[in-house]
Design a protein around this nucleic acid. Structure first.
Lengths: 235, 235
DNA sequence: CAAGATTAAACTGTCGACAATCGACGATTA
DNA sequence: TAATCGTCGATTGTCGACAGTTTAATCTTG
């Protein structure tokens, strides 16, 4: 083993992974609303803008397709997925199913270190609740939920969460404002953490179910106010 | 609306999807054991064999990568995923979580038609139980579980099931023989269907949990007998 | 003879090119 | 006038090629 090229603190920047980079860039563009739902993703345009050829762009698009952010329309190109009300319902329904399970697993695996990490994240949530910064609030909320899935210890479960979260952020970003009172969100988070620390599966499931269910109802209400047209339409 | 150009009976024919075809072929090759876990997937070789260029092969490989059947090793190519014991555990754990939920949803959506379809599938399972054809048995078992997810009515849930099933079939095919007595499998299937028809969520969850859990323990035992080396290794 | 250095072959990542196809717009016709 | 048909530009699907890297095979050397 060579000690040169120290592996320590290696800021993962495999600059050799063009496809991954493009995928990340496209994902960000979609989540942040630069690529609106229904918009056509012109390969040549993306490639030109990034100063690369179309091949890596196409491969990245395939990744996002499998991930549900894009839909491939043969001979017509890739389009940014349009989320209908039914999609929101599906995503939240699965989220509840998966995150409840993650909560139970996390309780089993909980260590002092991971417990403290969760507590700290709740503190952060409480602090950001006073900031009137919806984007930040959503971000920290997302982190808390993700931590639970991380602690659960299943790679597949975590990836599933990430996929669902990506899809959700499309609409959350679109809604723009927060979907509930920041303080109340923080409170239900605390309830979830308490349940995990106590370790009773039924209570954990009930709390997470309630917490996510509340968000579901809010988002569903807001989304239904926005009209929607079938997928694959132009611009 | 015009009555001319009747849209009736038009059989859509979008077989122009080369990438999708390649993805299916590769998936089959992996499931059927022509591509063994750990094997290197040489783009040029696949392309030559299929009489096409490398571009569609690469895009198909990206799909399978996101799906978990292949892993991409930058600058070194794609390899068939090697499933460790921990992977089996993760998959079955998620399966239980997801399929229990699917069962509850299916019970809510159950119609006479879908109920009969499930019953017929159980009949098929009973028939194939006497045939001593493990591959067929696994296939019909898979169909039964998939039907429940279909009836549940969530596209994402169904896709998740398909992804997990693809991964599992890699090992099932590898094990070769069936992991339990066909008759007993058929019996627990009947128990699951009964519960769904009755509609009590708790009972449904308990039965599905038990049914899949039994398979889990069997497969886990068999898999742990097979040694395994880390991913990305040669051949 | 074994371990390291060197060279050759094979493979990946990326690119530019070309034919096939799609969508839009305008011409044609009843 | 309204619907259909044909044309044209834009875009996708696929290909072959080339540079850089990895893998293997061969050679060197203590």
């Amino acid at each position: 083993m060579r000690l040169l090229t120290p592996p320590v603190g290696l800021t993962a920047l495999a600059d050799t992974d063009l496809v991954g980079q493009v995928a990340r860039i496209l994902t960000q563009a979609i989540i942040q609303g630069q690529l609106l739902p229904g918009a056509k993703v012109v390969e040549a345009a993306i490639a030109r803008e990034l100063g690369i050829s179309r091949a890596p762009v196409r491969e990245a698009a395939r990744l996002l397709e499998q991930q549900g952010l894009l839909i491939a329309n043969p001979r017509r190109g890739f389009f940014v997925r349009k989320l209908e009300a039914i999609d929101i319902d599906e995503i939240y329904d699965l989220r509840i199913c998966v995150e409840c399970h993650a909560g139970v697993l996390a309780a089993q695996n909980l260590t002092p270190a991971t417990r403290d990490a969760l507590r700290r994240q709740i503190d952060v949530l409480n602090e950001t609740a006073d900031l009137d910064d919806p984007a930040r609030q959503v971000e920290e909320d997302y982190k808390f939920h993700r931590m639970i899935c991380e602690i659960a210890g299943s790679k597949r479960l975590l990836r599933l969460f990430d996929d669902l979260a990506s899809e959700l952020r499309m609409v959350i970003g679109l809604i723009g404002r927060l979907y509930d009172d920041p303080r109340r969100i923080a409170e239900t988070h605390q309830a979830v953490l308490d349940a995990i620390e106590q370790g009773h599966p039924d209570v954990i499931v009930a709390r997470i179910d309630y917490h996510i269910g509340a968000a579901w109802r809010e988002v569903a209400k807001l989304v239904r106010e926005i009209p929607s047209s079938p997928n694959g339409a132009n611009t």
